[in-house]
Design a protein around this nucleic acid. Structure first.
Lengths: 334, 334
DNA sequence: GTGAAAGCGCTAACAA
DNA sequence: TTGTTAGCGCTTTCAC
């Protein structure tokens, strides 16, 4: 009855303590059918007494792990934090636990992180890295339910939850046009490509389309990830004489870096971001940006994933409409 | 030789494909002693062909999972992001994978997240929640190596990596005194307690000691976590007539909220933060703050953890010295 | 309502 | 150097 030192209690120990079989304990554990109240009580008491905790690895050998894996490429981006908060809220009260695999930038790293999660037998995966190869994703989705967050392709094997970047980009550009801007740059990541299925790809594509439709010349500024890199990209462009009055940034982190360049010049540049991270609304920044309902998107991603875990196989593609938030970082050109 | 549909390859499949035993494959997998080059080659080829990936759950039943778990209570705090980046850097090139368990605020939730990690058989845990009960922690540390990040107690069972908050608080206060401030408030979380072992507890304790030593009256402002809550706490205090010329905030997120209150008044309040998160250096905020070397602290935490995984049992307590960064949010009182 | 027993994929001790 | 085999803790039929 006493716990052997050096290891924690197993289902066997609990069964012995309660004077029942292993199977009985397992049933109580899983709320399975066919347990008398008396037995349930004795088993529960024994579990408490022995501080029993089921080993997830052992359960994984036969069934569920009650673990949802979330792959996140960039913790510097607070938009993902909002998504995560939504996901955790949606999972509260369920037996599922969230586990996050951080990925370095780059599609290879995103895939590596997703595979790490799958190797650990998560019951389902929410993945954010938008540039992971679709073939690889479908190979994974064949065995493990997958929901892609912010990705534009469609696949029969996984669901997608994304924002409507066509709408969002249009709102940002119309706002700038309305203020009288015509020389508008787009600041995006070096790897963005207007044929790809990432949100940044879509924003770039729409920016180009809208500028061309208005008969204006496009100016695409490239940068690495992060505020600092964005600052340098914009500062360099300005000192190189790039002649624009506004910058539409592919997301807020880049926009905030651009704002630093603005602070160092005469402040004549208008900046629009994307996502509406918490700091964007701070009066010291006052960043005009396209708000995405990250929390709701996270909730929905979990709902879809749990449906897949429960057996749904036909794909769902969920699109959320963003909304422009006008603040002080945009004003008419001088 | 063909993969049965509906499941992925096992070590058995690889052994069959390569015409060797399971044990041989296992040895190749673990780089164990006693494998001929010829065999290694055939096995490796079979693994590639079958796209074999070891199941972590099955390995966990016998030995390592090659997984390091990190428990993080607040993704809104970018200081933890820096720690995480350091930890990942330190683990690059090792066979270990990082997995993060997010915890809601509160010591119960922190413990829940740590236990979730332990249930999943991680080889070691880095935990951040400072207010988790020490008894519970030691019970866990008896079976799983633990490094506590930013925690002041000492235990024989786990290591600690923390900043020197006595030094950091002194630097912040001396800076304010040097500018001529005497009516200085401390903004801290509602649950901070100057007897507890958290960094916030230590900062509160030192603030009180220093104010008393200078013969000044303390003013402690309480808030919930988050920028918004901090803003309201400070704005309310000011409109209630609390008479101070400076606020020393327990960390940057609170300081940034306080800065919002400053922006709405005549800007006469000086603010000092703690941690030096990336946004603090932005010229629009210009937050004076106590820099902590989060990346280095993360690297060190991993080093200590791997030492414990390798067998060290005597505890190590590592302290990092912070450094004041003076920016525009502090100036002499009017 | 309850228990016996097979087996999930892997590691490691041991045998050959 | 290579192969055989006994479990790790749990779930899940299938008898009783």
């Amino acid at each position: 009855m006493t716990l052997s030192p050096g290891r924690s209690a197993t289902i066997e120990d609990v069964a012995a303590a309660a004077g029942v079989s292993r199977a009985a304990v397992s049933k109580v554990l899983r709320n399975a059918y066919g347990v008398s109240d008396a037995m349930r009580e004795r088993v529960t008491a024994a579990m408490t007494e022995l501080q029993y905790r089921p080993r997830v690895a052992a359960r994984a050998m036969r069934g569920r792990t009650y673990t949802i894996g979330i792959e996140i490429p960039d913790f510097g981006n607070q938009f993902f934090t909002r998504m995560l908060a939504g996901a955790m809220k949606a999972l509260a009260g369920t037996p599922y636990q969230v586990v996050i695999a951080p990925a370095e930038a780059g599609s290879r790293e995103g895939l590596r992180a997703i595979e790490a999660l799958v190797d650990r037998q998560v019951d389902g995966v929410i993945a954010v890295s938008p540039r992971v190869d679709q073939k690889a994703l479908e190979r994974i989705a064949a065995f493990t339910p997958v929901v892609m967050f912010g990705r534009y392709d469609t696949s029969d094997d996984y669901d997608t939850v994304a924002g409507d970047d066509v709408h969002g980009t249009a709102a940002a550009m119309e706002h700038l046009f309305g203020l009288g801007h015509t020389r508008i740059a787009h600041l995006t990541l070096r790897e963005s490509d207007d044929t790809d299925t990432s949100p940044h790809g879509a924003r770039l594509r729409e920016y180009r389309r809208i500028m061309a439709a208005a008969g204006l010349d496009e100016v695409v500024l490239r940068t690495d990830e992060g505020q600092d890199a964005a600052y340098h990209a914009v500062a360099t462009a300005l000192s190189d004489g790039v002649d624009v009055t506004a910058v539409f940034a592919a997301h807020d982190e880049l926009a905030i870096g651009a704002l630093r360049a603005v602070a160092e010049t005469d402040g004549a540049l208008s900046i629009v971001g994307y996502d509406d991270v918490p700091i964007a609304a701070h009066p010291a920044l006052g960043l005009t940006t396209v708000h995405q309902p990250g929390g709701e998107m996270g909730v929905r991603a979990i709902e879809l994933l749990l449906e897949r875990v429960a057996g749904r196989t036909d794909p769902v593609r969920e699109v959320f409409t963003p909304e422009l938030r006008v603040r002080t970082s945009t004003r008419p050109p001088r």
